[in-house]
Every structure is written in structure tokens, then in C-alpha cells.
Amino acid sequence: MLKKLAVGAAALVATSSAAHAEQLVDSIHFLIPGGAGGGWDGTARGTGEALTGAGIVGSASYENMSGGGGGVAIGHLIENADSMHGTLMVNSTPIVIRSLQGVFPYNFSDLTMIAGTIGDFGALVVTPGSATTLADLVAAYNADSSSIAMGGGSVPGGMDHLIGAMVMNAAGADATKIAYLPFDAGGVALAALLSGEIEVLSTGLGEALAQSKAGEVDILCITSDARVADAPDVPTCSEAGADGAYFVNWRGFFAAPGLPDDKADAYRAAIAAMYATPEWEAVRARNGWVEIHNPGADFVSFLENQEQIIGDLMTSMGFL
């Protein structure tokens, strides 16, 4: 009985200390390189909400600065680096792709890399009954390349196209010949899949999961290195026959170049502390995010590795 009480008290102490976590950073100003309502906006505001709600960060403010597909905000952060030590910019995989394309005059290595926080895996999606496995799809494509049109939410040569091509290549199809149809938003691409305009959709697992649970679509495979808890029946692409097709669409935070190490470490510690809080769990669950935490040096090597893989793929596809 006493023991039980003690455990209860310990748990009580633990939860209360979690609720009033130690404040690690006074305030963070989030620079959002896109408009309100977008993915970057949601990530920054959600993260800020969790950090301040848990008491890890004293206060958070948000600034939307769109333009140049995010290039304007990156430029702003670099040009005013000295006065922006209190600022974190959210960004994601496209920063790597666009730098490779030469569209951005900047690269992620021009910034201080704080941490990757969340991510999503790529998924190849078909309508139920059309192809049951990735091998079926590849066989159908190899038999008649004009029978398959692939759709996605990015421009041709963009992320969804790259992921789709990566998986098809690894599974033994010549991805350069696949017709790729770009769509505005995930929703419209999904409608195109259901209406039969495209035979396979390259998208994020997060977007496909709900539809798959509702039985509207089948997910052929996901670009993770192991099966994920949310979709235990879905094979990884490696398992499905596309060996080595691994891709994470990450989101994370960057700071101004030349940020002192102690400040950068304080931000990293704040983000690391965030994952254990109930406030974060609420935000994460609400948005369906997958935790992929890559702090500091891990983030640097992760990004360099991703740049290498994407760069090779883009060159071999003729995207560059």
C-alpha cells in the first residue's frame, strides 16, 4: 500500500515536473518562409505551441515571409544574421532539391542547422484491386509503359516525382519513361487517382494513411527503413522489391549563420526536451506527424547524405 502510494507520488511529481518543465530558452521568433495555412506555417506554430505550452520556452512569435519558394526568408536570415540570433526558420526537404536545381542561390550549409524534428515517408498509392503489390505495378508497366501514369503533388522533377522515380527504378523499371502528371495539392491528386486519370500516386504517408484506413486506396509501399506503427501491414519499399529506396521528407529548424554554439545548443536542448511533453504529443497527434529527431551533427550528416542521394538520382534521371 505504502509502496503504491510512493509510486503514485513519484508519478505525480514526474507529471507535474513535465507540466512545468524547466525553461531552457527565453523566447523564440519563428521565421516561416511561406504563407499562413501551409505546411511550414503549421510546423512552426505547432512546435512553438508545444514549446511554450510546456514551459520550455518563455514566449514564441511568428513571422510569415513568403517569396521565392522560401528563398526570400533564407536570404533575409543570411543577410541580417548578426541581429537574428533569436530567430529559428522552419524548412524541409525542398531546400535540398531547390539548391541542387540551382534555383536557390543558397544551400542549407549556409545556415546553422539546429535540428530535424518531424518527417514523413513517401508512399506509392493505387486504387484497391488495380495492383496488389509493387511487383504487379512494375510488371504492368514493363509490359506496356503507356498503361501507367504516375501523379503527385509536386512539379515534374520535384519531390513526389523523385520519390516515385526512385522506387520504380529500384524495383527494376525505367523511371525516365513514366508519364508524370503534376497536381496542385494532395486532394486533387487523390481525386485524379480515384477517377482513374492516374494509375499510381506518389505522395506522403501522412496524406495516404487516412484514405487507406477508409478503404479507398491501397498503399503499395513506403520509403522507410522499417515498418511504421501507424500502418503495420504496409511493407517498406525495400521489402516490396525496391531495394534501398529510402527517403525521408523531413521538416526541421535552422538558425542564422554564425550563431554562437551555446545558443545553438540551447535551442537543440529545448527541442530535445519537447518530445517528452504531453503538449507536444497533443500537437503531434492532431497533425499526424511522425517524430524524426535529428539534432545538431546528426542533422548535418543526414542532410549531406540526402543531398548526395537526391543529386545522384536527379542526374541519372536527367533532371539537372
Binding site: 515534374p156 522533377g157 525516365t176 534521371m317 536527367g318 533532371f319 539537372l320
Partner: peptide
């Protein structure tokens, strides 16, 4: 225009 897109 990169090679891939030339023939689109």
C-alpha cells in the same frame, strides 16, 4: 531545360 524535360 534539363535533358529529361526536353522531350515532354
Amino acid at each position: 531545360i534539363p535533358p529529361f524535360f526536353k522531350n515532354q
